[in-house]
């Protein structure tokens, strides 16, 4: 176990280094960040002066080494647009993002889990038909269409729920539905098909042949095994929701990390984009680690040293 964690830690360091390096140089290809910081019409000599003051006129490699120097001391630099430490700007928005992403995932796992199980255990029933048609539509509906529709109906017309912003539980309902729709659909479809796969697995057949009750077989063997691909998908999607819920955040005026990233890139706010990328990379690595640990719980045959 300790060896496993140490390897993972080393690998994570390489991953974070890679993310930082790619983001750092890719951003510099997008052009001069100073242009968007000053009012339209600012003369070039003053743009150059500000560029110099911010150190963007130095050779790229010097900037890169300098950035790492600061990073290793815990200094992520100041946002160009906000004039505030970049790291705290990202961390400030993390709770709102996490709240939305985790709640959506929870809803998706519960509803998707029930729907997938029902569909697999009651093959040919009306339940299966409803669950699977619902899942297909859920997977095919574009997020922003759904979000705007929900706002139009439940906020603008019916006045039942707030149109946006972060507040109490009522503010969460519409964005969670919007965000959970796709994940619910994919979880239920995946769970159904992997449950059906498990039926034909030798050890499940053996368990059944040994005379275990149908319930014991289902919970002890089938569901356990079928959850492994589901956990993988949940892990990947949680990672995506943490950084990529930008459309839902935009429609519901939700103060999350996704919107911050998009704004930061549009404003060429290099330090802020870099800080966000690092925070998200670490978060995603953490989620992946959790996923791997879950594998072990679910299937004792999987050993930690060779999980990919």
């Amino acid at each position: 176990m300790r060896g496993f964690l140490l390897t993972r830690l080393l690998e994570s360091v390489v991953t974070v280094w890679g993310v930082v390096t790619i983001v750092f140089f890719a951003l510099r290809l997008t052009g001069d960040p100073v242009l968007l910081m000053v009012p339209f019409g600012t003369p070039p000599d003053q743009i150059a002066q500000l560029r110099h003051a911010l150190g963007f006129d130095r050779p790229l490699l010097v900037q890169y080494v300098d950035y790492w120097g600061h990073l290793l001391r815990g200094d992520f630099g100041d946002s160009l647009r906000f004039n505030q430490p970049a790291l705290s700007l990202v961390l400030e928005r993390l709770p709102a993002t996490a709240e939305l992403a985790l709640l959506s995932m929870l809803v998706a796992v519960i509803i998707g889990g029930i729907a997938g199980t029902v569909a697999a255990t009651r093959q040919g029933s009306v339940f299966e038909l409803i669950a699977m048609v619902g899942a297909l539509i859920g997977q095919a509906t574009p997020v922003f269409w759904l979000g705007i529709m929900l706002v139009l109906i439940f906020a603008a017309d019916l006045h039942w729920l707030p149109s946006g912003g972060r507040g109490g539980l009522s503010h969460l309902i519409l964005p969670v539905i919007t965000l959970a729709a796709f994940s619910t659909a994919s979880i239920s479809r995946l769970l159904r098909s992997s449950l059906l796969d498990m039926r034909t697995q030798d050890y499940v057949r053996t368990a059944r042949a040994k005379g275990l009750s149908e319930q014991q077989v289902f919970f002890g063997h089938e569901l356990r095994g079928a959850l492994i691909p589901v956990v993988t998908i949940v892990g990947i999607q949680t990672g995506q929701l943490l950084g990529g819920a930008v459309i839902t955040e935009t429609i519901f005026a939700w103060p999350g990390v996704g919107r911050l990233i998009v704004q930061a890139i549009n404003n060429q706010d290099f330090p802020l984009v870099q800080a966000a990328a690092i925070v998200l990379a670490i978060t995603i690595i953490g989620v992946n680690l959790l996923v791997d640990l879950t594998y072990v719980v679910l299937d004792p045959r999987i050993r930690l040293d060779r999980t990919a």
Binding site: T15, V16, V19, I236, G239, L242, G243, G258, A277, A281
Partner: peptide, 10 residues
């Protein structure tokens, strides 16, 4: 791994 740790939008 690096790709997976990268938000797609970014």
């Amino acid at each position: 791994d690096i790709y997976l740790a990268f938000p797609f939008i970014l």
